[in-house]
Simulated scan of single mutants.
Amino acid sequence: MSLPKPMMRGLLAKRLRFHLPVAFVLSFAAAISYKYMVSEPRKKAYAEFFKQYDAVKEFNAMREAGVFESVRPSGE
């Protein structure tokens, strides 16, 4: 009893017919899931943060704490 010959001719094309569409579908699914599970919640969190963020108030608090070397606190 002898072993059958391995298929050598057209092996890449045969395997790509299956693996290429699967790769595209999986990459598309990964991109969509990243968009809705990571990107959208992050955008929503940033929008919520900047709705109530006051940059001038934050600057004055840092100035009073002495964070900046070139800006004197208002008491001096």
Rank of each mutant, 00 (worst) to 15 (best):
2 S>E: 09
3 L>C: 08
5 K>F: 12
7 M>A: 13
7 M>T: 13
7 M>S: 11
8 M>L: 14
9 R>S: 14
10 G>P: 01
10 G>H: 07
11 L>D: 02
14 K>R: 12
14 K>N: 04
15 R>Y: 00
15 R>E: 05
16 L>I: 00
17 R>C: 02
18 F>L: 02
18 F>C: 02
19 H>F: 12
19 H>C: 05
21 P>V: 04
22 V>E: 12
23 A>G: 09
23 A>W: 10
24 F>T: 08
24 F>A: 11
26 L>Y: 04
27 S>R: 02
27 S>F: 10
27 S>T: 12
28 F>A: 15
29 A>N: 07
33 S>E: 06
33 S>W: 08
34 Y>K: 03
34 Y>S: 05
37 M>K: 04
37 M>C: 11
38 V>P: 00
40 E>F: 06
40 E>C: 01
42 R>L: 07
43 K>T: 01
45 A>I: 00
46 Y>L: 13
46 Y>V: 10
47 A>R: 09
48 E>C: 00
49 F>R: 10
50 F>V: 07
51 K>H: 09
52 Q>M: 07
52 Q>L: 11
53 Y>E: 05
53 Y>T: 00
57 K>D: 15
58 E>S: 14
60 N>S: 05
61 A>D: 15
62 M>A: 15
62 M>S: 13
62 M>I: 03
63 R>F: 01
63 R>W: 03
64 E>Q: 15
66 G>I: 05
66 G>V: 01
68 F>D: 01
68 F>L: 08
69 E>M: 09
70 S>Y: 08
70 S>Q: 12
73 P>L: 05
75 G>W: 09
76 E>S: 05
76 E>W: 01
